[in-house]
């Protein structure tokens, strides 16, 4: 009763009251969403303490048992303690550690937190590039669309991208033409050969409009891709996510989904 039924009742009441508040924007439900939202932020803020406990305990055990790389765990605990003490000390001294006058913001945030975070995320530029090499092979129509859309958006968003696009697409079209000619030579039937050679000629001819129009229109094409096909697919995905989210929330409120009680 205390361990399963009451939590289920609490979930049902807190969830259903918010749904009522959406459809009845008057007292007593009027400001319920705002109030519950504040409570939610407070209670979930305290869950951070549980997370910190788990993190510190894991690393403390590594130090205690002298496991491999235990000194890195010691560095983590020291970094945690120094940041916490410095933050609260600055908070007590100037009122808020995020005040521009606080040393916490001036030194820790600017010279430790930002460099670490920005460098960590900038590493992804290299790994994305290697992932792109594997994913962007124009083997099927869909993979080609993915490749072309990504390249156009990337080149359309940088100042010198329009000029570079002519060279890149020119090289790609020449490579395509060479590939088609080689493929045509290996064929025995005349129709296939004509198609391959025709395709090669068209690829070479396509370089002219690309050289003429790409430098002017590439940023507009990139914007069009972002605003029309990209937005359309994203809307479809968002609508799907919303419907799935509503279904899952209803399962939780009605007590069908109870995995959080395990």
């Amino acid at each position: 009763m205390m361990r399963r039924t009451i939590p289920l009742i609490i979930t049902f009441i807190s969830g259903i009251l918010l749904v009522f508040a959406l459809f009845i924007p008057h007292k007593p439900f009027g400001n319920l969403e705002e109030r519950f939202n504040d409570w939610y932020i407070i209670v979930s803020g305290f869950t951070m303490i549980l997370g910190m406990d788990s993190l510190l305990l894991h690393h403390w055990n590594k130090i205690r048992r002298r496991q491999a790389d235990w000194f890195h765990s010691a560095a983590l605990i020291v970094a945690f303690a120094v940041t916490l003490v410095w933050g609260f000390y600055s908070g007590i001294k100037v009122g808020n550690p995020f005040d521009p006058k606080s040393t916490f913001l001036q030194y820790f945030y600017t010279y430790v937190f930002v460099p670490l975070q920005a460098t960590m995320f900038s590493l992804l530029a290299f790994f994305i590039a290697s992932a792109a090499y594997r994913a962007f092979r124009a083997r099927t129509l869909n993979a080609t669309l993915l490749l072309v859309a990504a390249v156009v958006v990337m080149l359309g968003r940088v100042p010198k991208g329009s000029g570079a696009s002519v060279v890149l697409f020119g090289i790609a079209l020449v490579a395509l033409a060479v590939g088609l000619v080689l493929h045509g030579r290996s064929l025995v039937d005349l129709r296939g050969q004509l198609l391959a050679y025709g395709g090669a000629a068209l690829s070479i001819l396509a370089i002219i409009p690309i050289a003429k129009y790409f430098p002017t229109y590439l940023p507009a094409v990139a914007d069009w891709i972002m605003n029309i096909p990209q937005l359309a697919a994203k809307r479809g995905i968002f609508i799907g996510i919303a419907l799935g989210g509503i279904a899952m929330s209803l399962r939780i409120i009605l007590g069908i989904e109870r995995t959080y009680l395990k």
């Binding site: 807190s14 959406l22 939202n37 209670v43």
Partner: peptide, 12 residues
């Protein structure tokens, strides 16, 4: 349970 219920309500 409260945070899950709140999350579900806010989810809808």
């Amino acid at each position: 349970a409260f945070t899950v219920g709140m999350g579900a309500g806010l989810g809808i």
